[in-house]
Design a protein around this nucleic acid. Sequence first.
DNA 1: AACAACCAAATTGTCAACAATCTTGTGTTT
DNA 2: AAACACAAGATTGTTGACAATTTGGTTGTT
Lengths: 220, 220
Amino acid sequence: MIETKEQIKSDNLTERLIEAIVNGEYPAGSKISEPELARVFNVSRGPLREAMMRVESLNLVERIPHVGARVVTLSLGKLAEIYAVREALEGMAANLACKHITDSEIATLEELLNRHQSHIEEVDGASYFYQQGDFDFHYLIIKASKNHQLIALLCDQLYHLIRMYRFQSPRSKSRPEKALYEHFAILNAIKARDPELAEMLMRRHIKSSRLLIENELLEE
Amino acid sequence: MIETKEQIKSDNLTERLIEAIVNGEYPAGSKISEPELARVFNVSRGPLREAMMRVESLNLVERIPHVGARVVTLSLGKLAEIYAVREALEGMAANLACKHITDSEIATLEELLNRHQSHIEEVDGASYFYQQGDFDFHYLIIKASKNHQLIALLCDQLYHLIRMYRFQSPRSKSRPEKALYEHFAILNAIKARDPELAEMLMRRHIKSSRLLIENELLEE
DNA sequence: AACAACCAAATTGTCAACAATCTTGTGTTT
DNA sequence: AAACACAAGATTGTTGACAATTTGGTTGTT
């Protein structure tokens, strides 16, 4: 495993482009120029356009024929809609995880939450790192559901979009302690192999985030 | 509106390619040759590849670098997974539809079901046309949810894949009369603006299809 | 000054040729 | 005869140039 680096420019490009958009290097609403990006990434326009097609189907950019592509504009309304979908899908994931999770996956989750706890106790309020780990928690449960279609939808299709929102609105601190407590409760339900409880707790967990967003929305 | 035809070859191509794959013109598992398709569609390989990228992200084909693309192979297992996801998402759609559907949309749904009833009474057992209309019913309810993310996921992302499965396994007659009866029950719940009932009925409706599939799966 | 028509520059869409990689058939070796 | 190595052919990945369309500014008219 000396040279594992992907040799397909188009594929690498897709990931680099996603990363650049998600972390705000290309701000929301900004135009994306093909010749310029091709120069920046040191590629021809062919592979770049192929990458753009894929990023478009992730709903990270909007393209208008003969006009060009723009990074999608964020809005609290859209975010609330995404969280509503997450509620349904991750609830389902938690339910299925109870039935299909392995002991080793449970152990991984437990270690993860313990690390989070230590981290919160040490650096009280450092919510950035927490959010990263928060993703890991949800990510692992989704994978543990073993439903490939569900995993594809959440981890491939919605993941980057959610990440982009989080990155660009770091206001949602949402009390790490409370979230961590809820995560432990969800994990316990999964360990007890209680699908209904796990689903209910996961839905409530995400719903509380959604309600925060909708409250912000009303204040406008 | 004299010339509404899309002038972007790449965009048209995507739809034509989706249609060709869905209706089995290119059978499951068959290899897709870029030079050949470019000749068939009378296009250069550039736009064709862009269309392929999009079709790939719909999970209709699988691409392996430097080897080529193949139409996805169907399996009852995958289908069951998709139906499980549908259960969660369309249940949510029915719930939201109760809150956001308009009177004119209700009227459209009512007409649709009445036409189905007449059709079933006339040509007893013609399940093919029924299935087309079945899609319309689900499609309309999804749209009525007014959650754009949900609509995108179901109508753009999963729709074609489901259609492909249906097209290639017309065994699932699944008793049109029973399904129609369930559709009426769902519509009534929506008219009564009863989200919990509508969601429950929709989930049960889809679940019965999923169980049929899982039974077939066990017989193998 | 306001507005419409038009032209030029830039950008997107498309193409055909070139380079890199995989597949397949042949021949050799054990 | 089976297995491996190699080479020819075909296919995919990439590039740079050309064609078509939009955009923004200029000019002329009302």
